[in-house]
């Protein structure tokens, strides 16, 4: 790889490799960033990579809820994201009290009770 590639180009390359099923590209990317001393850009590059994948219908999403979600909810989530291939990282957090929070590279939907109560508290004057 040539010196000082843009984040977009790097992300595009990584996304292509992942689509092709080549998971080694992650290690390559890490080595590249260390060699180029651009480890600070790792998060940005990963976000950009995920955004590109999302644009092609491959979505990695974090789901947080107070209780474990079932298949019906997962199906609804897929319909909601419009993804051809949805990978969910499930998190069970009782502090959200109820409801669900969905985070993808391009959007965030927070329908938890904790968020609603937080919004209620923000209405203080």
């Amino acid at each position: 790889m040539s010196s000082h590639l843009s984040r977009t180009k790097i992300a595009h390359y990584v996304a292509e490799q992942l689509r092709a099923g080549k998971r080694d590209v992650v290690a390559e990317l890490a080595a590249f960033l260390v060699e180029e001393r651009r480890t600070g850009e790792a998060d940005l590059i990963m976000r950009s990579t995920l955004e590109q994948l999302e644009a092609e219908g491959i979505v990695l999403a974090d789901v947080t809820s107070a209780t474990a979600i079932d298949e019906a909810i997962k199906t609804e989530l897929q319909k909601l994201t419009g993804a051809k291939q949805l990978t969910l990282r499930e998190h069970v957090d009782e502090s959200v009290l109820g409801g669900i929070r969905l985070e993808t590279p391009s959007q965030r939907i927070d329908a938890t009770f904790a968020h609603r109560l937080s919004q209620l508290r923000e209405r203080k004057i």
Binding site: I73, E76, G98, L102
Partner: peptide, 19 residues
Amino acid sequence: THSAKADKAVIAEALKGAD
């Protein structure tokens, strides 16, 4: 008082609203 069943209903409602 919030049960898992009630939570599922709330989640389903929330997803419909978000959709």
